[in-house]
Design a protein around this nucleic acid. Structure first.
Length: 829
DNA sequence: GCAAGGTC
């Protein structure tokens, strides 16, 4: 049997399909897909299935000095047990294996990991095939000419793994221990995350240090035959043009002079035609940037692209390549869109061009093709609005890359009034070219009328504008990702995740991201004692070393040993400064948690965590001062810049993924709850009969509202209510529960209040909905199957554990007993 | 419980 190994299931399926001419069958082993045809089996890994780490005796942070990690052994162990087990069992049956992982350095390493696992089971020959896109031609060619695994290239990847682990773990533990942050809130550093963080911190330092200068600009409204346009005053500043006037008196005097003028004489007219080339094919970075300008975060854009890829509508979204492969036939791909709505007309128009020659970007790599539509056309109704918008972006980008350039006419007019010069720059789109099919890049025109030299233009108005120089802008997420790419740090598959990690670690918040005090302290500490870890140089050096290993000019041991020695020197420096570094970090941590001062004793009010993990606001003067305020039970608190005017206290935001909300001023929230009286709405279904408990709408000091029993805490019956909006009690009552219907008025949208209805019915519906959504998370369950399962008594994934697969499969059409067993196995794992 | 790199 010949065993073929790919990097991911999707690639395994497509390669099996190509090599078997569509005849491959899929079976599940251990919850892993195996494709089989003739004497062949094909399995897809899930990227790395083994990972590097230190042996278990190094795992207690308190017992081990961070510096000891430098010379600790680094071991590999399976991270995806079920995949590793399946690979091993297939290897035992194989008399030949072929590694078909991605054609890049990491793919070679993943291939070597598979190689070693197979070697532990069999001596069968193992070969390597390389192809840069999964098309029939390339794949069949590659399998006809197999090669050997490139162990040097894989070793280069291993060197990276080892160096990243040792530097990252040793320094992360050092900083965390020095600041006594050992729980979930440890303080991390790494070769990629730390230079990225420094980028953000450096920009913030520039903004903080920025000292604005005043300047003035003068704008005149000119007109020809009643058609007005704007022109700007400028002067010659030693041979170059300047619009900014730095002296107020001078600005006033120019303004006064111009104001008395009725007309300006055209001095020169210059016309130029400019070509505006269509964009290059999408690599990951360019895609994230384009999606960013549509309002998508980097993470969200990538996760939508991954869904579209898994569904088969777009190609693999993680790629550096900006050149379409030779065997992509753009005409054929355009054909697939003719007759579809809304792309049909554009596709037909593009097919009518004389020739169809796609643009080429600067990077031609072997990893994957640029992101483009596959030609498989989705049903609009099966995609969410966001998915559709991203799909349309990918389709239109492909269209743009095969479209004609646009041409613009630039018109520059300079006019003179009393020796003062005014200029107007206009632009007009002559040929829309690719803008016809790609509406995302701006094609806006600036109108300046046709004028002749010597012509008189009326001055209709003159304005003097007082301005200030602006600090540099913060980096947005997509700008950060482009900067990372320029610096050569991170990869197409990880850059968006690194930014997400900075949010998770409490280093940045907001969009565009702003660094916390902790982030500044971490960068400060690293700059002082471990400069390399916050510098892009570390990656540049590593890349050089990896190239040397790949070419056989250096060895894995040589490179990692040298890196260990450098880190040892860093630790010699750090040793004596541990306390100083720790104090600085701790002060910054406290600064990030301080929201104002205590109304009772004047000490700082800080966010603290109770023994049970919940957050509250406490006084730094504790135990002398016991003042506290509650915070919502959901999410992680974040102190915002915004300050409550009444209490001079910072607003607090609760981070809880998609349920994130702004809590506001904790003192205002608590006061509002104190002022609100409980409104009785009916009898308590739990203790009303026996003890006379009643249900009331309650406002808690933590800001949440609920329907709860008046006998609390003796009776704990409660129903949740939404956090926002005014709660209105209506006359209509629920026949079943004898409670009034409620409605929520959301301030912004009073015309369309939320009819919540009976609070008990509402809560029951909410629970049912949640259970169905959980079911939909299972592999291969859509909303319809979830409904059917739920009708058969399987209302949540937990219900699967106790059922008899055959009995349920009989009741629910479209679900096999085997599939149910797979789910049960997955849930157990 | 540390990194960065794959992938879901």
């Amino acid at each position: 049997m010949q065993l073929i190994i790919t990097e991911k299931d999707n690639a395994a399926r497509r390669i099996a399909d190509i090599l078997s001419d569509g005849g491959a069958d899929a079976e599940r082993r251990n919850g892993v897909n195996v494709y089989k045809w003739g004497g062949k089996r094909c399995i897809g890994l899930s990227g790395h299935v083994v990972g590097v780490d230190f042996p278990p005796e190094y795992s207690d942070w308190r017992d081990v000095q961070p510096v000891e990690l430098i010379d600790a052994e680094v071991v590999k162990s399976p991270t995806r047990e079920n995949i590793v087990a399946t690979l091993r069992s297939l290897a035992r049956e194989a008399d030949e294996a072929v590694i078909a992982t991605d054609y890049d350095r990491e793919g070679e390493l993943i291939g070597k990991e598979a190689y070693e696992l197979i070697r532990e089971e069999t001596d069968a020959p193992i070969q390597r095939v390389r192809f840069s896109s999964i098309t029939e031609n390339e794949v069949k060619q590659a399998f006809a000419n197999p090669d050997d695994l490139d162990f040097d290239l894989a070793a280069a990847g291993e060197a990276r793994q080892i160096i990243d682990l040792i530097w990252g773990a040793a320094l992360t533990r050092f900083l965390s221990l020095s600041a006594r942050q050992l729980g979930d809130d440890f303080i991390s550093v790494g070769r990629v995350q730390s230079p990225t963080l420094k980028l953000i911190v450096d920009r913030e330092r520039e903004i903080e240090a920025f000292d604005p200068d005043d300047y003035w600009e003068i704008v005149a409204e000119l007109a020809k035959n009643g058609s007005g346009f704007e022109a700007q005053y400028f002067y010659d500043d030693d041979g170059s043009e300047a619009e900014r006037i730095w002296d107020e008196d001078e600005a006033e005097s120019v303004f006064e002079r111009l104001r008395t003028q009725q007309a300006a004489t055209v001095e020169s007219v210059r016309r130029r035609t400019r070509t505006d080339a269509p964009p290059a094919p999408f690599n990951t970075t360019a895609f994230i940037q384009a999606a960013g300008s549509l309002g998508y975060s980097a993470q969200r854009a990538m996760s939508i692209a991954e869904e579209l890829y898994t569904a088969g509508y777009v190609t693999y979204p993680r790629t550096d390549n900006t050149v379409y492969p030779d065997d992509l036939d753009p005409g054929e791909l355009l054909e697939s869109f003719t007759g579809t709505s809304p792309f049909g007309d554009d596709a037909t128009a593009l097919l009518g061009q004389d020739d169809i020659e796609p643009t080429r970007g600067d990077t031609e790599s072997t990893d994957h093709p640029p992101i483009h539509p596959t030609g498989e056309f989705p049903d609009r109704n099966n995609l969410s609005d966001d998915e559709w918008e991203i799909y349309e972006l990918v389709v239109r980008r492909f269209f743009a890359t095969v479209a004609e350039p646009a041409t613009w006419e630039h018109l520059r007019v300079v006019a003179d009034a009393d020796g003062l010069q005014l200029k107007a720059n206009g632009k007009r789109l002559l040929e829309a070219g690719y803008h016809e099919v790609y509406p995302y890049s701006s094609a806006s025109e600036t109108h300046v009328p046709d004028v002749q030299e010597g012509e008189q233009l009326a001055i209709e108005d003159v304005g003097l504008q007082a301005k200030q120089t602006q600090p540099p802008r913060r980096y947005g997420q997509s700008r950060l990702i482009s900067r990372m790419e320029e610096m050569g740090i991170g990869t197409k598959a990880t850059r968006h995740g690194t930014i997400e990690k900075l949010y998770d670690r409490g280093y940045i918040d907001g969009d565009p991201p702003q660094p916390t005090a902790l982030a500044k302290a971490v960068v400060d500490a690293a700059e002082a004692f471990a400069e390399l870890i916050v510098s892009e140089e570390m990656t540049a050096q590593l890349e050089e070393d990896m190239t040397a290993i790949t070419n056989g000019e250096a060895t894995l041991e040589g490179v990692t040993d040298e890196s260990r020695e450098m880190l040892e020197r860093v630790f010699e420096e750090l040793h004596d400064s541990r306390e100083q570094v720790g104090e600085h970090l701790q002060e910054s941590l406290k600064e990030d948690r301080t929201i104002g001062s205590c109304p009772e004793c004047g000490s700082d009010l800080v966010i603290r965590q109770s023994r049970y993990g919940s957050y509250f606001v406490g006084c730094d003067g504790y135990p002398e001062c016991e003042y506290t305020l509650p915070l919502p039970s959901k999410g992680e608190p974040l102190v915002l810049d915004e300050v409550c005017e009444e209490h001079d206290t910072h607003h607090v935001k609760m981070l809880a993924g998609s349920d994130t909300f702004v809590h506001g001023c904790p003192r205002c929230q608590a006061e509002a709850a104190d002022e609100n009286e409980d409104r009785i709405i009916g009898a308590c279904p739990e203790c009303g009969q026996e003890h006379g408990g009643e249900l009331a709408i309650k406002h808690l000091r933590s800001g949440s509202r609920l329907v709860g029993c008046t006998r609390y805490p003796d009776c704990e019956y409660s129903l949740p209510l939404p956090r926002r909006g005014e709660i209105e009690v209506q006359d209509e009552r629920c026949a079943e529960h004898d409670l009034p219907h409620l409605r929520i008025l959301d301030g912004d949208d009073d015309d369309d209040p939320w009819e919540l209805g009976c609070p008990i019915c509402n809560y029951e519906e909410y629970q049912a909905r949640n259970a169905v959504e959980d079911l939909e998370d299972l592999d291969g369950v859509g909303s319809k199957t979830a409904e059917k399962l739920s009708a058969a008594g399987v209302e949540s994934p937990a219900d699967l554990a106790g059922i008899e697969p055959d009995a349920v499969a009989e009741q629910v059409r479209g679900v096999s007993a085997e599939q149910i067993r797979d789910w049960q196995a997955d849930l157990e794992a």
